[in-house]
Design a protein around this nucleic acid. Structure first.
Length: 150
DNA sequence: GCCAACGTTGGC
DNA sequence: GCCAACGTTGGC
């Protein structure tokens, strides 16, 4: 089993939204590196840190798990969809998504600032400068270190 | 294949 | 709202 971190802007889709719907298709990812992880690596049962970005206190706010492994993101084929991509077709899909299932909220937000100053977490992609990937792998040691902060 | 221009992400 | 850091696009 692997661990991941997925970013979401709480104004668009928050951990409370996930708690309400329980399972959410994680579509709209239009970055090849992230796509490759969605398509090739994520497996049912993998654990996910749910991260709030672009908000007052960016940080990890909850835990989710992969409920369905990578499958084509057909919102790319819909001309009315926000992330429409005319180069993606249902016969030859360019973009993929997974389904994410709510597990629980953390007791408190573990802020980006805390993660940055934690000596054991300096190698985390998330805290490295300029990282913009919306999906990143989390080393199992890091996963447990972070949960220890809760 | 290079690289300037442009768009996006996301912390601050 | 600003801007640094990237990724993508397209002319050449």
């Amino acid at each position: 089993m692997q661990y991941w971190l997925m970013k979401s802007e709480p104004d668009a889709f928050s951990i409370d939204d996930l708690a309400r719907v329980n399972i959410e298709p994680w579509d709209g990812v239009r970055n090849y590196q992230a796509r490759n992880m969605l398509r090739d690596q994520m497996q049912v049962g993998d654990q996910v840190f749910f991260y709030h970005s672009n908000c007052d206190v960016p940080g990890i706010v909850g835990i989710a798990e992969i409920a369905k492994a990578g499958y084509p993101d057909d919102t790319a084929c819909n001309p009315d969809a926000k992330y429409y991509d005319p180069k993606s077709t249902s016969e030859n899909p360019r973009w993929y998504r997974v389904d994410v299932k709510f597990v629980r909220k953390l007791k408190r937000t573990i802020s980006l600032n805390e993660l940055k100053v934690h000596p054991a977490l300096t190698e985390m992609p998330l805290v490295r400068k300029g990282n913009r990937l919306s999906v990143t792998p989390v080393a199992s040691q890091h996963w447990h270190d972070i949960l220890g902060l809760e």
